[in-house]
Computed example of a mutant assay.
Amino acid sequence: MGAQVSKQLERRKAIDAEKKILSDLLQSSGDQFPGSDYHPSDPKTWMSSLDPSKLHIRNILFPGTHDSATNKIGIPFISRPFAQCQSSSIYRQLCRGARVLDVRVNQDRRVCHGILVTYPIDVVLDSIKRFLSETTSEILILEIRTEFGYTDPPDFDTFLSDQLSDLLIHHDDHVFDKTIAELLPHRIICIWKPRKSPAPKPGGPLWSAGYLRDNWIDTDLPNTKFESNMKHLSEQQPVSSRKYFYRVENTVTPQADNPVVCVRPVTERIHGYARLFIAQAFARGFADRLQVFSTDFIDEDFVDACAGVTHARLEGKA
């Protein structure tokens, strides 16, 4: 018992020390970057306001949500706090400016996070279609994967293609060099990541797993995650020469051996340092690698920061 208490005390000290490192870095270097003062007038249409005829896909910093469809996962106040990474619906996330969705499914086409299961994938797709029907020039990246521990839903590629139909931007490496206007009326880059089923074929309506990459690490230590994100981002090619999307997640993950295992209090250790991360990417010389930036519990400030970088790139200031 004493050894376990000692371990938890050391863990608490490590977390506090890492939080202080980020706090001190913010105080010493600030979180300003090209475009940091930009605020779109309406987050629902922030891409449209940046001139779709000039905005190339490669120059967008896409704000994304991690475990996007978990707003109603689990039982309220019982299991939900351990798995909920977003408190808003998919539709509300899109209206707030999110443009990358991370959705996990099981063999029954239901959304899940680990062992917890929530609504059918149809709820997600209907929300997306509703949002796109209300806007004209917003482009989305929809990542759908089979959750670990489950089997692939049967014929899911056909199902997605039928459900999203003419909204889909078919796989094409030249997409990265095109403007939003050149892709319209197609609006969705859908990346399907099955566990065992065949991957989407080149040139088809769906994109394969290699087109959205990341280097996720399982830690609840905020500076460890921050610096890991920095390291892996620095190793990427600039967006101007890359033919895949690269994602950085401004999140940390609850650990089973720690007393604090609810998502929100853990992820808040790093949540407020999104602007610092962008500023440090500029300061360290590899902001030209930034392309997809995701978070738990997305908010207006996170979207503003991503839209600001996008605006600066469009203006030739980043």
Rank of each mutant, 00 (worst) to 15 (best):
I298T: 10
P52D: 05
P154Y: 14
E268L: 11
S197L: 08
S88D: 12
F148Q: 03
D299N: 13
Q8Y: 12
Y211N: 09
H39P: 01
S137P: 01
R104F: 07
M1N: 12
T118Q: 07
L140N: 02
V309H: 00
P40V: 07
D152P: 12
M1R: 12
Q291D: 03
T65K: 01
R195G: 08
V261R: 15
G210C: 07
L125Q: 02
H174S: 14
D122M: 05
V105M: 08
G210F: 10
G203V: 06
G149R: 09
A3C: 07
Q237H: 14
L22N: 02
P153R: 08
S6Y: 11
A83T: 04
Q107C: 05
C190G: 01
I128W: 02
D218I: 07
R242G: 09
R110H: 15
F131P: 09
S41Y: 14
S127H: 13
I15L: 15
A274E: 05
R110L: 08
Q4N: 10
W46L: 03
D173E: 12
V111I: 14
A318T: 10
F176R: 02
Y211F: 15
S28W: 07
G74Q: 05
A281Y: 02
Q291V: 02
D102V: 14
S161K: 08
V266H: 06
F156L: 07
W46C: 04
C95N: 09
G210L: 07
P238I: 13
L101S: 01
I121N: 03
C85F: 11
L290H: 09
H56A: 10
L221E: 05
R242E: 09
S133C: 03
G149T: 11
I60H: 01
T118M: 06
F131D: 02
S87V: 12
A209P: 00
H311T: 01
D296E: 06
A307G: 05
D51C: 07
R12I: 11
N106F: 10
R11H: 14
C190Q: 00
D108Q: 13
W192S: 13
I191K: 06
V263F: 10
K7C: 03
S197E: 12
L125D: 01
A283H: 10
V260S: 03
H186C: 14
R11M: 10
D51T: 11
T224G: 00
I189H: 00
R269D: 02
M1G: 13
L276C: 11
V303W: 00
I298L: 10
T295Q: 08
N215Y: 14
L221A: 03
Q291H: 12
T136Y: 08
E18Y: 06
A305G: 03
G74S: 06
W216Q: 04
I21P: 01
I188F: 12
R269S: 07
I21A: 09
T136Q: 10
F77K: 05
I121C: 11
T136G: 04
H186P: 01
Q4T: 14
K317A: 14
P153D: 06
D31V: 06
L206G: 05
I169G: 03
S29I: 04
D155M: 09
T65C: 13
L314E: 08
D155N: 15
G2F: 07
I298K: 00
T158K: 11
V117S: 00
L22S: 03
I75G: 01
F82C: 04
H171V: 03
L212M: 11
Y150F: 15
N229F: 08
C85G: 10
F82N: 04
L167Q: 09
E138S: 06
S240E: 15
I75V: 15
L55K: 00
